[in-house]
Nucleic acid binder design. Structure first.
Lengths: 223, 223
DNA sequence: TTGTTAATGCAACCGCCGTCGCTTTATTCT
DNA sequence: AGAATAAAGCGACGGCGGTTGCATTAACAA
């Protein structure tokens, strides 16, 4: 209401920004080093040179502390400047993402997110979800606008088909993502999108004559 | 080493199979209910009607207990019987996988695997890795043999491109996987594989003339 | 039946995590 | 300078997860 600035005298609220920085930095450090499960607030406090109570007062739970550390360390979007060549741009972008995902820091963050208290991480995952496919989708939308891709492809879907294999390899399978794999993924998905014009993207599942006759003998035991 | 059967007398080693079953069942139950982090061996013991010590003696760590529960509950491969129609078979298989992945049990298992002690889960993930793409890969290999797909596509790669989006949605993004999404994924990837014959799958990145001129204006701030 | 062997139950213990009450320190207004 | 206010330090406590030593019980062979 009409409560003006009304600075009450005394020590200012909000605490020391420097302390907060130390703590969040130490949190991320421990997260990379030990993972979410093994992360102990005691260790964070020790590394940050701070009493454990100080941390617990500001972030009541480990999840909240880690969420704060993640949002504080949120890496800027890749400084990506498209050349205009669709395939090259996609390969460059996805390869950059793959390499970033291989970073211990990003891996630790990605793994931690799955373990956070859902109620606490809700806002964070919503944020991530909003931005998940923006960059490849922008490139694809532009390619559609310029006529390089057919109009009836779904940019969001295509972005997902491009990004998913990289994320799957890097995060789920925990395997390296060589550049060649990125190139092959882009090649196939792009070729598929270009061919979409003449095959059935819509609901109708079989405009094209099915070739059932060719392979009736291929049956495997249900074990 | 001429030690014959030489049954030593006394209570037989190995413990009660029934007890083991109870414990592993309770472990999986708790895993679905609370997730790996929240899973407490005390609770498992309570549910299984067994003393905590019994569990700890047989499986020294929580990771080992959970791994044992997972391998004990390993679901049989999907009883999938291909019809011979490539697209329909892939859609059916992937949709079945998607629906299974949405099961709380499978979700809990998938999430837990990321949190296990790597040294303990090593064998398990190696096993999973060996079998990861077998079924779609078999279908694809058969399609290649029957001439329905070009010879120069990599079955393993194609299987990965098909499976990754489904896993990514279900596990990483924690979103539902509608059948339509599966159909679209299969459509695009299959179309891309078919088109692979005439575009560049190999190292050479640009046999096709690049259309750089079309979209030089598409540049976004690096923020 | 009886002895042998190993699994199971029981209870106590250690250590770490998270909390609480109190004291100390730092900052700002009067 | 001194009072006021809130953050930060400090120590101790309760609780839980994991461990250990010992007593008990169950299964099998002689």
């Amino acid at each position: 209401m009409a409560r003006a600035k009304r600075r009450r005298r005394g020590r200012p609220a909000g605490g020391s920004a420097a302390l907060v920085g130390e703590i969040l930095c130490a949190t991320l450090d421990q997260l990379c080093r030990a993972g979410y499960a093994e992360l102990s607030v005691d260790a964070v406090a020790r590394v940050a040179g701070v009493n454990k109570t100080t941390i617990y007062r500001r972030w009541p739970t480990k999840s909240e502390l880690v969420v704060a550390a993640i949002v504080a360390a949120k890496t800027r979007a890749l400084p990506f400047r498209p050349s205009g060549d669709l395939r090259r741009d996609l390969v460059a972008l996805l390869d950059a993402k793959a390499r970033r995902m291989a970073t211990p820091r990003q891996r630790a963050i990605a793994y931690a997110i799955n373990n956070l208290d859902p109620a606490v991480s809700e806002a964070l995952v919503a944020e991530l979800r909003r931005h998940r496919y923006t960059i490849p989708r922008d490139i694809i939308e532009h390619a559609i606008a310029s006529g390089e891709l057919p109009r009836d492809v779904d940019p969001e879907l295509l972005a997902e088909l491009l990004l998913a294999p990289i994320c799957h390899r890097a995060l789920v399978m925990c395997e390296p993502v060589p550049k060649k794999f990125v190139e092959q993924t882009v090649a196939i998905v792009l070729a598929g999108a270009r061919a979409q014009r003449r095959t059935s993207l819509t609901e109708a599942p079989s405009k094209r004559p099915a070739r059932k006759s060719a392979s009736a003998s291929f049956a495997r035991p249900s074990s």
